[in-house]
Design a protein around this nucleic acid. Structure first.
Lengths: 257, 257
DNA sequence: TCAAAATCAATCAATTTCTTTCAAACATTA
DNA sequence: TAATGTTTGAAAGAAATTGATTGATTTTGA
């Protein structure tokens, strides 16, 4: 311990301490800096007022990067386990050093979570949560497509997005869809997104569609593309076997998580 | 110990002393240079006004620039008060319903914070924190430019960004710069960003540059644009008066927060 | 649900540090 | 040398920081 620090230095020290530990109690701070509880509280109060930490009863925790997640959050709970399994399996298809496109939606976000430790990846995406997931990582380059932010999905769509897509290519494209059906192909529920998604399908050497089993044998409102526009389909064991067999019949690689 | 130094020399000595030691107390300075507390305080005050040190109760500490941490978050503390004032004043220039471009940097982020309650705005930006700030707000449309994510600033730059810029126009453009100088104009410290920033300057009817006073009368490494490419300059009362007068002489509207 | 324990916010006093003010010392220019 | 402006030091009142105390609030465990 150094000699008495000024309040600002101490607060900076607390902040960096809090980056490493996931939680700091008042008592810990008192001991570490040899100060009274009152002062420790005042320091945390000051840091919280600056929005640098999250105050909790008994201490403080680091600020969970306050990135928004409105309706996306609720939906991500559904079939959370299935999506996690899909994410893990799908991420295994990616080699270090590749360029990968990640679309919007919670299932693709699960794929993204399993790619954070990889080295030398280039991530192209139109999903704000995906960008936030990779932002600040030194080993991964992030390319955002831009466009108009769609609040319900936190994804970028529109003319600007499609124009940006014409400038990039990816080794693998991971796309989530609302519904997959043998007869009606890939469908989504939001028409304006269709043009953007079609453009996305064209930029990848391998197109990988991910969807939990509740989305199979279903049809949504907006036709996106025929089944054969995807090379690989990843879902879970819970999916209907005959449906899977029919996809394989079409030459589509099907992986079950 | 040298014999009596002039105030300027002494301040430089204090500065270099402060680079080695991580903290200097008033008493230390008094002893080291054989000066009174009053003079020691005046020296620190002068250095702090130039944005060269961080003043604390009882002494001073170096700026946190050297931290390899997420620099944006840390840096936002410097001149935090000035930036907040600028943000408030600048936001007042925006009318409900307008289309506004917001650039990267902590000062512009302060402007953004003061625009969250507005109705019917369209926000165009290449700054990830700005996007996150407005994401999910129903009354505000967000347009992201896309591009390669620059980790240190969390902003998007590059070819994709510039291409997207050619598709949009804004009523007002808010831009932060690293340095503003009468002779050398607007300068930044990161060369690859220059092309993007120049493209940004072209999309607005009114270009508003924001910078706290420590960035005035300074020059950075990469030339961005002449002073006359901005219509309005917003800084704080602390800025040098003759500098402000000279800007007004050039026909630039100067606002002091 | 209640009660004990922990934590908190609010306040006060003691200490340190800061700002302001003024006058003396010093340097600069005419 | 005289006049002017800058830098310095000293002193008094203002402000900030801290630790202690009190009573309120929240959490925890039965």
């Amino acid at each position: 311990m150094e000699t008495s620090l000024s309040n600002i230095e101490r607060q900076q020290a607390i902040l960096s301490l809090l980056q490493r530990q996931q939680r700091l109690k008042i008592a810990q701070i008192c001991e570490e800096f040899s100060i009274s509880e009152a002062t420790a509280r005042r320091d945390l109060e000051a840091l919280a007022a600056q929005g640098l930490i999250q105050r909790v009863h008994g201490g403080a925790i680091p600020l969970q990067h306050a990135t928004p997640e409105p309706p996306l959050l609720e939906r991500s709970q559904e079939q959370a386990d299935e999506k996690a399994r899909i994410g893990k399996l799908a991420a295994g298809l990616v080699q270090d050093g590749e360029t990968v496109f990640l679309g919007s939606g919670t299932t693709v976000l699960e794929v993204a979570k399993n790619l954070r430790d990889r080295k030398g990846l280039t991530i192209i995406t139109n999903s704000l949560p995906v960008i936030n997931l990779f932002a600040g990582l030194e080993t991964i380059q992030v390319v955002c497509l831009g466009g108009i932010l769609r609040n319900s999905e936190l994804s970028f769509i529109g003319h600007i997005t499609e124009q940006a897509l014409s400038e990039v290519r990816a080794d693998r494209v991971f796309l989530g869809v609302r519904a997959v059906d043998l007869e009606h192909g890939l469908t989504n529920d939001y028409l304006p997104e269709t043009m953007t998604d079609r453009a996305i399908l064209k930029i990848g050497r391998e197109v990988i569609v991910v969807a939990d089993h509740t989305k199979t044998c279903r049809v949504s409102t907006a036709f996106l593309a025929p089944l054969t526009s995807m090379h690989t389909f990843i879902t879970t064991r819970e999916a209907d076997e005959s449906f899977i067999a029919a996809l394989r019949e079409l030459g589509i690689q099907v992986l079950l998580a």
